[in-house]
């Protein structure tokens, strides 16, 4: 019931925004098409401006992942994750979570293919996929769009939130799905 409602919100949100905002603008005597083009032009410049930042970050993350260095890191933290009752299969996913959104989705899909979506691992992978955003992608794109290279404590906060999300997902899956 709730999910159906949420589903229809997701489906209707964009068409409704595209309908209501231009009509609202017209009523308020905004030259709607001219203003649209004016805003769209800004969007174009912003998207191009983030290219160098994203190239730098995606290359480093991709090399880190493809070389097996990420697996080495996952093996290194395994004693800690064993201690808190996280399945070994999940650890690489936790390491990947802040680095690559498409990577996490790929790994979560693979875990569900192997273990099934209703297994503990499948459920935990699902919750981890649906929790928190890809920290490094967000920071790179958002800061990159205004040319900021010194992120101060943002990385630390993002990673702390990711670790919390992982621990909470583990705890909740143990208690909700047993």
């Amino acid at each position: 019931m709730l999910v159906n409602a949420l589903n229809s919100i997701s489906q209707w949100a964009i068409p409704l925004l595209l309908l209501i905002i231009p009509i609202y603008g017209f009523i308020k005597k905004v030259p709607v098409y001219e203003k649209f083009v004016e805003g769209a032009e800004e969007g174009f410049h912003t998207a191009v401006r983030i290219i160098p930042f994203l190239v730098g970050m995606m290359v480093a993350i991709s090399v880190f992942r493809a070389s097996g260095a990420m697996q080495v890191l996952a093996d290194l933290i395994k004693p800690v994750t064993d201690l808190i009752g996280a399945p070994a299969e999940i650890v690489p996913l936790a390491v990947m979570r802040p680095l690559s959104g498409s990577g996490v989705l790929g790994m979560a899909t693979e875990l569900m293919r192997v273990y099934g979506p209703d297994s503990f691992i499948g459920r935990l992978a699902s919750v981890m996929q649906g929790t928190t955003d890809t920290t490094f992608f967000v920071l790179t794109v958002y800061f990159g769009s205004v040319g900021i290279t010194r992120y101060r404590y943002s990385v630390l906060i993002g990673l702390s939130a990711d670790i919390t999300g992982f621990l909470a997902a583990l705890f909740l899956c143990h208690h909700v799905f047993g």
Partner: peptide, 21 residues
């Protein structure tokens, strides 16, 4: 980024209308 160009243009265009009103 190229995929973002069109999406950015669309949403910032719509946002500009909302902002002006």
């Amino acid at each position: 980024c190229m995929n973002l160009v069109g999406i950015m243009a669309l949403w910032l265009g719509i946002m500009k209308i909302a902002e002006s009103g």
